[in-house]
Every structure is written in structure tokens, then in C-alpha cells.
């Protein structure tokens, strides 16, 4: 992310964190939008196992559900946990479990194809 974008994001956070009433309203609207998105994605997720056996293969179901789960987790971290408005260093710290995940996947692949 460029410095310019970071500055814009920080301004948005300042507006939302107690500046103007308009900014507060837009932050509240943003939170409700994220909440509704999470709810809808959950309904979609629950619906997938109902239809997959007839329409999709197990791998498609697994990839789709995994993608949806990480997308939802990303929304929570980005907006509810305010990572969108934090400096890059804090974001790198927050991504630590992902580095571990990559390392574990590499170890698993190495074991499988040894």
C-alpha cells in the first residue's frame, strides 16, 4: 500500500473515530454493511453442503468453503479490528499466523512428494 493510500485511510479513521457526525454515521454504516455481509456469507456457507453432493465435487466444495471462511475472517480483521487504518508494521504482525500456515503447507507438501 502506498503512503498516499495510508494517509487517506488514516483520515477516514480520524473522521470515524470522533471527528464529524457525518464520519461517525459513515463508519456506523460501514460496520452494519460488514455485519450484513458476514451474515449473508454464513447463510451461503451453510447452504453449500446441502447442494454440493449433487452439483459439485468434494474438492470444489472444500476450496469454496475455505475461500469464504478466509474472506469472512479477513473482513473481521480489516474492518472490525481496524487493521485497514493501522500502519503496515501492525498488519505484518497480524499476518504472523499466515506465515506459519505457509510454512506448514510447505512441510506437508515436502512430506507428500518426498
Amino acid at each position: 500500500m502506498t503512503d498516499q493510500t495510508t494517509t487517506t485511510d488514516e483520515s477516514a479513521a480520524d473522521a470515524g473515530h470522533g471527528g464529524h457526525a457525518e464520519g461517525e454515521q459513515s463508519m456506523r454504516g460501514l460496520y452494519i454493511t460488514i455485519f450484513l455481509t458476514l451474515g449473508l456469507l454464513t447463510v451461503f456457507e451453510v447452504y453449500i453442503p446441502e447442494v454440493y453432493s449433487a452439483a459439485w465435487s468434494g474438492t470444489t466444495k472444500m476450496l469454496l468453503l475455505t475461500f469464504l471462511a478466509f474472506a469472512k475472517a479477513g473482513l473481521v480483521a480489516t474492518y472490525f479490528m481496524h487493521l485497514k487504518w493501522e500502519k503496515p508494521w501492525l498488519r505484518w504482525i497480524a499476518l504472523m499466523p499466515i506465515y506459519m500456515g505457509v510454512a506448514l503447507i510447505l512441510i506437508m507438501l515436502e512430506t507428500m512428494y518426498r
Binding site: P49, L65, L68, A69, A73, V76, F80, M81
Partner: peptide, 22 residues
Amino acid sequence: VGLFWHFVDLVWILVFTFIYLL
């Protein structure tokens, strides 16, 4: 406390998918 609570929610989103749905 908000950060911790959202983390608990975030983890459950993953647990729900991997343990219950897959």
C-alpha cells in the same frame, strides 16, 4: 478487549467451516 473479542469471532468463523461444514 474489542480486539480480543473480534479475534474470538474470527477464529470461530474458521472453526465453523473446518470442523462443521467441511
